[in-house]
Computed example of a mutant assay.
Amino acid sequence: MLIWTARVSKKTKAVVAVILAGILAAAVLLLVGRSGGGQDAAAWQLTGNADRIAYLESMGWQVEEEPVETLQFLLPEKLEEPYLTYNELQDSQGFDLSACCGKQVARYTYTVTNYPGRPEGVQANLYVCEGQPVAGDILCAGADGFQDTLVYPEQD
């Protein structure tokens, strides 16, 4: 049987604790960053059109250079329908509109050019509050239309 002992000062213990805490924090940030959607949206500052396009491209979408519509509106102090239902869709991708209650929100609508199996008729809505993405969806109107999250669909 072998017994090994070592004398470690309080200073050394503190340094090791700080290093381990840093490694743990880096691991948490890495895992949160990999979860996609709005989880890392706070890292984006969308101050101009190029920033918004870059954000959508980071999600896998290719869009036309200029938005087809821009809309500014004041989000109510308390979310009610239809915002509550829409916020459920947003929650599934890591966004939460309730953080913007009572604030000015801008919606930018872009034409999507790379939706799998749909060469036209698909749009991306991106909602921005105080320079940060707070919601978004992919929309296709019509009889066989749909509304989905910004998460790029996996192809079969």
Rank of each mutant, 00 (worst) to 15 (best):
Q62K: 15
D96G: 09
N87I: 03
E57W: 08
Q93D: 06
F95K: 04
E88P: 01
G94M: 03
C101I: 01
E64S: 06
P116R: 09
A106V: 04
Q90C: 05
Q72L: 03
N114R: 10
Y110F: 15
P119M: 13
E66C: 00
L97S: 01
E120H: 13
L89C: 01
E65P: 08
Q104C: 00
L79W: 10
A99W: 02
W61K: 14
P67V: 09
C100P: 00
E69D: 12
S98Q: 07
D96E: 07
L71I: 01
V63K: 00
T113G: 07
G60N: 08
E88K: 08
E69L: 10
E65R: 13
L97V: 07
R118F: 14
C101T: 10
G102L: 09
E80S: 12
N87E: 04
A99I: 06
V105S: 02
A50W: 02
E88M: 04
A54I: 10
E80L: 10
D51I: 10
A99Y: 07
C100S: 15
K103W: 00
V105R: 06
A106K: 10
Y108G: 03
G60K: 15
G117S: 15
V63E: 08
S92K: 11
C100D: 09
E120C: 03
P82A: 07
V122I: 12
G60V: 06
G121A: 10
R107N: 11
T109Y: 00
D96Y: 04
V68D: 13
Q90F: 03
A99Q: 07
I53L: 14
A106E: 14
P82C: 01
Y86I: 06
D51N: 09
L84R: 07
W61G: 14
Q123L: 13
E69K: 09
Y83F: 11
L56V: 08
S58Y: 08
Q123T: 15
V122L: 08
S58L: 07
G60T: 14
P82N: 08
A50H: 09
Q62M: 14
Q62G: 15
V63F: 07
L89F: 04
C100N: 04
E65H: 07
V105L: 08
R118G: 01
Q72F: 02
D96P: 00
P76T: 06
T85W: 01
M59K: 14
P76R: 05
T85R: 11
G121M: 02
E80D: 11
P116Q: 15
N49W: 04
E65I: 11
S98T: 13
G117L: 03
T109F: 01
L75G: 05
P67K: 03
C101K: 04
E88F: 03
N114T: 04
N49L: 13
G94Y: 06
Y108Q: 06
G94I: 12
T111N: 05
P67I: 05
P82H: 03
L84D: 02
P119N: 13
V122K: 02
E77N: 15
P82T: 05
G117C: 05
E57N: 15
D91G: 12
T109M: 12
T70C: 01
W61T: 09
T113I: 03
T109S: 07
E77L: 06
P119D: 13
P82Q: 08
R118S: 14
E64P: 01
E88I: 00
L56F: 13
P119V: 11
E81D: 11
G60F: 12
T111F: 00
